[in-house]
Design a protein around this nucleic acid. Structure first.
Ligand SMILES: [Mn+2]
Ligand SMILES: [Mn+2]
Ligand SMILES: [Zn+2]
Ligand SMILES: [Zn+2]
Lengths: 119, 119
DNA sequence: ATAACTTTGCAATACTGTTGCACGTAATTC
DNA sequence: GAATTACGTGCAACAGTATTGCAAAGTTAT
């Protein structure tokens, strides 16, 4: 199962929801995939994005990625097709927080139309 | 009801979830508050943030704010107390998207510890 | 007073995420 | 190789949030 789920994420090259992954199989239970994704996340193979679509999405990490801290990148949710893209070449900038606020993590989601949905 | 809900948001000065607002009343139904918030949002009195906590949060807009487009600011979710702050004096920077991507909207959430939760 | 419209509460529903449990399979130990 | 242990899977149930249909109550206009 792990190989198959990994394969789906690898093939699609974008962030997928639990449901979307489930759709790519016949007769595999949601919970199995859920737990597989959890395992992946615990072992830093994937990262998750809450893009505001209602479902958390999952995408492969790059080999050298340590998503929990330094490899944070923008994500892009297309309002037409609903696909979520990792903008991996766009690291998020350092933010100067007001006094007393302590940075731990960030989730920067941009919404708009993706290259497939222009025109 | 609208005056009361507005009052709660005004008093708290931070983004509150539907549930948190509900807690501040006796015997007011969730759906009534939900619809009140929807009305506020349709009339640009408030904006909502999906901070990844599982519940959407709502906060008052400034007088001149047109949240849908230009008045986008960072939001800060405290991982200790769970409170969400509008960093209204911190407009989000312009982002240079890759070719083909079209900016419409953004949701930038930073997680960490807030001033109340240091030490 | 009557009619038309709005607001509210209740209940039901949808959707996502999450967990307990039992069972089958694989790995380990003796 | 048989007994034991650990692991992976499916099913079903449950939790939390968001959302809607409907009827009753309240408000405004005629
Ligand atoms: Mn990503
Ligand atoms: Mn805000
Ligand atoms: Zn698209
Ligand atoms: Zn705090």
């Amino acid at each position: 199962m792990r190989e198959l789920v990994y394969g789906v994420l690898d093939k699609n090259r974008k962030a997928l929801s639990l449901y979307e992954i489930e759709q790519q199989f016949d007769n595999v239970d949601r919970s199995t995939i859920f737990r597989t994704l959890k395992t992946f996340q615990d072992n830093l193979l994937i990262h998750s994005v809450d893009d505001g679509s209602g479902a958390v999405k999952y995408a492969l990490c790059d080999d050298d990625c340590t998503c929990s801290l330094d490899d944070l990148h923008y994500h892009f949710l297309c309002t037409k097709c609903g696909q979520t893209h990792c903008l991996k070449n766009m690291p998020i900038p350092k933010v100067d927080l007001p006094e007393g606020f302590n940075f731990e993590n960030a989730n920067f989601v941009i919404k708009g139309t993706c290259p497939n949905c222009q025109g």
